[in-house]
């Protein structure tokens, strides 16, 4: 039996194995993903992003609990950074979620970024598809701790939560052109700390300046103390409101269109690149060309055009 067939039957080990194959870039994973794709598109995908230490894992733990209490099954993809020096990683997001470890209605998978920028791993979208095809109802993606520009989450998740903490002060101003533009729901976590009011005000002002038009989603700014569970019920309420908005406004179709276009383009780019690169490495062209560019005998622009003309003409 193929992994995909076993996954459809609900075998957890098969799912865990395929996720590994995806992460490790095994060519065999592609056939399995092809078989699973028609079964995807059913899950509700929530993204949780924010700077390191904002409390993303603790908040994820509470959101899991809330959806479990509502009878939904929940899968989690939690991403932590890979060491740029050794390629190793310590994936510790499960620590805050360990009470769900033995709940058969929860499946938590940790992924390392493996050098991918953008807040997610390269494998995230496909790992989410495995969960989706398997019938998990809610999928939560917790990004690596982000700074300003890591906004991959917005095209992967239906509803993106941006989690901030009080006391970042002017940093909020500094990053408003980055992740702060992508929040569907803003959360000021650790809201029992001084300066929480100011953080909320800053975020609200930012949303107002953006001024969503009539009929558009107005991103709320909420307060939580995730550790104590304060504000979590309201948060889940807003997440569900956003989900309903996506359905009634027609934004869901638009989201799926954009996501599909980007994914198609990404795969096309990867495969074209891999093919051309294989050809030029095989023919010994690459080393010669690079030497010529380094010696200023040829410019890189003409070199690429010439290579493409030669190899893509067939």
């Amino acid at each position: 039996m193929t992994l995909a067939e076993r996954i459809v039957r609900g075998e957890l080990r098969a799912a865990a194995r395929l996720m590994r194959d995806i992460d490790d870039g095994m060519p065999s994973a592609v056939a399995e993903l092809k078989a699973l794709y028609p079964r995807t598109g059913r899950a509700f995908i929530i993204g949780i992003t924010g700077p390191p230490g904002a409390g993303k894992s603790t908040l994820t733990d509470k959101v899991i609990a809330a959806y479990r209490a509502a009878g939904k099954t929940v899968a989690v993809v939690a991403i932590d950074p890979t060491s740029p020096f050794t390629g190793g990683a310590i994936l510790g997001d499960r620590i805050r979620m360990s009470r769900h470890a033995t709940d058969p209605g929860v499946f938590i998978r940790s992924l390392a970024t493996r050098g991918h920028l953008g807040g997610l791993s390269r494998s995230t979208a496909d790992v989410v598809n495995v969960f989706d095809a398997m019938g998990w109802e809610v999928i939560i993606i917790e990004t690596v701790g982000v700074g300003q520009d890591e906004i991959d989450i917005v095209r992967t998740a239906h509803t993106s939560l941006v989690v901030m903490v009080p006391g970042l002060g002017d940093d909020i101003q500094a990053i408003k052109a980055g992740i702060l533009e992508i929040g569907d729901v803003f959360v000021v976590n650790k809201a029992d700390r001084p300066d929480a009011d100011r953080a909320v005000r800053d975020l609200e002002m930012m949303v107002e300046m953006k001024h969503p038009g009539a009929g558009e989603w107005w991103p709320p700014v909420l307060r939580t103390v995730a550790q104590k569970g304060d504000g979590v019920a309201e948060l889940v309420g807003k997440i569900e409101e956003h989900r309903a908005y996506l359905h009634t406004s027609g934004r869901l179709q638009q989201f799926e269109q954009n996501k599909s276009a980007l994914r198609f383009e990404e795969l096309l780019r990867d495969q074209l690149f891999a093919r051309v690169r294989e050809k030029i490495e095989h023919g010994g062209d690459l080393a010669v060309t690079i030497r010529a560019i380094a010696n200023r005998e040829q410019d890189p622009y003409n070199a690429v055009e010439a290579l493409l003309a030669r190899h893509l003409s067939e």
Binding site: A16, G88, A89, I90
Partner: peptide, 28 residues
Amino acid sequence: FRDAGFEVIYTGLRQTPEQIVSAAIQED
């Protein structure tokens, strides 16, 4: 282990054998 280039899933203190086995399976 990290410095040796491995990916380590660290689950924290006071885990039951059930929690550990469940994590081992989910994390492959």
